[in-house]
Design a protein around this nucleic acid. Structure first.
Lengths: 115, 115
DNA sequence: TGAATCAATCCGCATAAACGGATATATTAT
DNA sequence: ATAATATATCCGTTTATGCGGATTGATTCA
């Protein structure tokens, strides 16, 4: 039960939903998220830690950079929720806006000194 | 976005998940919930108010008693979550135990002075 | 109207969690 | 080793939320 409420707590915060709304598009590194969300790095890292502790995302280090992506295969409820988020988050205006910003950002990424 | 996080907040608490785990079985009144959950009435009512404000349950007065049930038709995310809960809550041991208690309770309900 | 009963709200207290600048840690390159 | 950079964690402060006994409000019946 604690695991279940923990997952829902992880989804109860605007910033974390925004992060997930970007990660449903694919793996990203912290510097990408900071740039697109336009939030302090400590804020982004703190929320990523929360999502990881809740089992919703996995992190992988590549050199200095940490890449995060949605976690897979972690129980029925978890998988059902990931499916649900992939489908329903993109209906929210704020998420759509972030996703647009992400596309712009990725298209000019070579000009950015990040991963 | 606020509406979305509000729904997830509503699902982030043990007591509220237990209430929903009973309501997926059908409409119940507050006194039923207090008896089965074995919690103070003020606690149950407070959580019911939270669930109602989040749009997850509807209340209907019948005389002195308030009957609560899962709300329907309130947006894509909402409906998807109700489906998910109906399916996944019953996998949790604590919820299964509550649902057993509910069946026992309902079977001897005529001996209880409640709705 | 007054008593009885169910449910909602109030209250003070305790705990959890968000914020973001500052600091610590980890990795790479010189 | 030292510097540079990316990320994680620490810290004090603020805000949100849970608790449950006590109170209030609503409804029914005599």
């Amino acid at each position: 039960m604690k695991k279940t409420t923990q997952i829902f707590k992880a989804l109860s915060d605007d910033t974390r939903l925004r992060i997930l709304g970007l990660l449903v598009q694919g793996e990203l590194c912290v510097c990408d998220l900071v740039a697109v969300l336009d939030l302090p790095q400590s804020t982004v890292s703190r929320h990523l830690a929360y999502l990881r502790n809740s089992g919703l995302v996995d992190g992988r280090r590549q050199g200095v950079w940490m890449h995060y992506r949605l976690a897979q295969q972690d129980g029925a409820l978890h998988d059902d929720l990931i499916d649900l988020l992939s489908k329903d988050l993109a209906r929210l205006e704020e998420i759509k806006s972030d996703q647009r910003k992400l596309r712009q950002y990725l298209s000019k990424k070579r000009t950015v000194k990040c991963c």
